[in-house]
């Protein structure tokens, strides 16, 4: 394994560990409620009522699907761009900026 690949693997591992380790240590004790929702609840508990409603509020299931859609669009575009850039390089044209843009 090259040094570069090793560093990449370690970075990925660090990201995964950063979020997996708290989950494991916690052992299911926490609900992992969102901070946004926590603040909203706190404000509501203090008697602050919203004066406007969302035009469209999806149910929980639909909402998680729409969040997945947002991530999928972003991930798809990111993968497309990085794939194109890599393909361009392996096609052996490191030339001046934008050599293949037109």
């Amino acid at each position: 394994m090259s040094r570069r690949a090793l560093v990449t693997a370690l970075l990925v591992l660090a990201v995964v560990a950063l979020f997996a380790v708290p989950l494991l240590l916690d052992g299911g004790a926490s609900e992992y409620g969102g901070t946004d929702a926590a603040v909203t609840e706190e404000l509501a508990a203090d008697g602050h009522a919203p004066w406007a409603e969302s035009l469209f509020s999806p149910s929980g299931e639909v909402e998680s699907g729409l969040f997945a859609l947002q991530a999928a669009i972003g991930g798809g575009v990111l993968g497309y761009v990085l794939g194109r850039l890599r393909g361009r390089r392996s096609a052996g044209r490191p030339g001046p900026a934008g050599a293949d843009a037109r």
Binding site: F19, L23, E31, Y32, G33, F67, Q70, A71, I73, G74
Partner: peptide, 15 residues
């Protein structure tokens, strides 16, 4: 777009 779609758990027990 990707990162802001993801809710991640944190050490505080919130996400």
């Amino acid at each position: 777009f990707v990162l802001s779609a993801i809710k991640l758990p944190s050490i505080t027990g919130s996400s």
